[in-house]
Amino acid sequence: MNIFRLTGDLAHLLAIIILLLKIWKTRSCAGISGKSQILFAIVYTTRYLDLVTTYVSAYNTLMKIFFLGSSFATVYLIYVKFKATYDHNHDTFRIEFLILPAVILALLINHAFTPLEILWTFSIYLESVAILPQLFMVSKTGEAESITSHYLFALGSYRGLYILNWIYRYAMESHYDLIAIVAGIVQTVLYCDFFYLYITKVLKGKKLQLPA
């Protein structure tokens, strides 16, 4: 464990808590893409199956349980509890166009052709594009509530911090995992446009408004 990975995990934790609080406090999931949240639930389910087979550390186990629980809770809040506030019209990204390529790529490019490894690889590829429905929705609505943009900033930073973690681990432990690194870079690059808007607008107190 290193400071980059720890702050990355905490940024990830913060993002999930921000989202849950936003939906729970405002009793509304307006502006939130349910499809992205479904993808995240799939990502954590397929990645954390080793929860039942391998004990790494208390931290590792607790975080996996939290990510799994919170992702399903978020999907529940969006599609069941507050479904009246779910914005069907703007959450229209075809997630099958993200899931299928991730399945195919995981079958083609992986470290080992075993069920757990293929599922882990699939979850890594899917996570790199899981935010697209949310970014697509923000572009369609042309704006995002500031709380939603804080959520996106924390979520985007988490994998960006992981990239620093991978540089650190390569330099210090000469350990690296190309699949995770390439997917992590793609994932972080997808946020770049948003990061620019966040830093130039939201941090100046303005609303996140995309140029029409």
């Binding site: 080793d50 790494v56 550390s57 757990l116 490894e117 973690n165 350990h175 995770a180």
Partner: peptide, 10 residues
Amino acid sequence: YIFGTGKDEL
């Protein structure tokens, strides 16, 4: 671990 090193990451 089952996967070897590296999967200790979340």
